[in-house]
Structures are given as C-alpha cells and as structure tokens.
Amino acid sequence: MNIFRLAGDMTHLISILVLLLKIYATKSCSGISLKTQELYALVFLTRYLDLLTDFISIYNTVMKLVFIGSSLAIVWCMRRHRVVRRSYDKELDTFRHYFLIAATFALAVLVYEKFTFREILWAFSIYLEAVAILPQLVMLQRSGNVDNLTGKYVFFLGAYRAFYILNWIYRYFTEARFTRWIACVSGLVQTALYADFFYYYFISWKNNAKLKLPA
C-alpha cells in the first residue's frame, strides 16, 4: 500500500468520524442528507460482498466492517433515533436518489469487468459511489449556510477522492498491470463533483470566514 492510498483511506475514515461526532455531540443531523447516507450504505453493502469469500488483509477486512457498520449506524440514527431524527431537514433533502440507483445499476449491467453477479454489483457500487454525494451537495446548496462540522465532513470526503486519484497515478507507474478503468474513470467523475465545493471551501478558509455557498 502506498502513502496516497493510506492518506485516502484515513481521510475517508476521518470524514465518517467527523459526521459521527457531529451527530453525537450536537444530537443533530441538520444539514446532512439522509439520501446520500443511504446510498453510501448501499455502496458498501454491495461492494464488500467479498468479505464473505476473499481475504486480503486484516486492515482491509477491518476497514470494510467499519465502513459498513458506520454507514448503517448513521442511517439508523437519522431515521430512528428519538432525538436526532427530529433535526433532519427533510424538506431540503429532495433529490430523487432512486433515479441514481436505477441509472447506475443500468450502467453496471452494460459496463462491467466480468459478467458475474458479484462483478456487476461491484461495478454498480463504484458507479453509485461516484454520484452518491449529489443529494448532499444539492442540500448544502439549498441551505446556503453550512455548519462547521458538515463542511469538514464534505471536505474530508473530497480529500479522500483526491488522494485515491494520486494513488492510481502512483500505481499506474509502479505496478505492471494496474488497469482498473471502471474505478479510475468513476473516481475522476466523483472528484470533479467536489470541485465547486472545494472552490468555496478554500475561499472561506482563506478569508477566515464561515463557509457559504451561492444560492
């Protein structure tokens, strides 16, 4: 494992910890899109089916379990927790996420590495992850004001994607046959979605001001 991959996994982990901290400390999930969180839970559940059949490393297994567990816990909190669920901004979270599921599943049936049940679900999870942040970004845009922890959560998620791209560039030059086109192209699309958010994040950081997105 190279340093970029490790940095990517760590920023991914930090983003989830920031989100859990926000929900736990403030007993509130305001500004967080339940739809994005449900999509992530689906992404992890469909991608990590290999937990049952393949063993890669302790690190790999633990991280997968953490991602599945934390995403399910967040969805549970937002839907069922007596206090937390009251702060969910349902009227701002209106993205039609079922369309994303349908469209990415259709793409996975057309473009895959191998025509097997698991490989198609793997491709589906990669495509879905690429667009899963959209409901969250739309929600941020709608509310305009972004609270500190929510802003940091999205920032770390974006950083995770950026590090993964550096990781692929590194692997392309150091490994003989590193060709993972589906993951790389989807990863580029996914990172591009954050470009706008990053732009405003850095402006607010430079001016030492609260993060605000234009309406």
Partner: peptide
C-alpha cells in the same frame, strides 16, 4: 488468459 488483479482497494 488475462487475469484481473485482486480488488484490494476499499
């Protein structure tokens, strides 16, 4: 035949 490398990323 061409073997796809293991999916070791998260």
């Amino acid at each position: 035949c061409l073997q796809t490398p293991p999916k070791d990323e998260l």
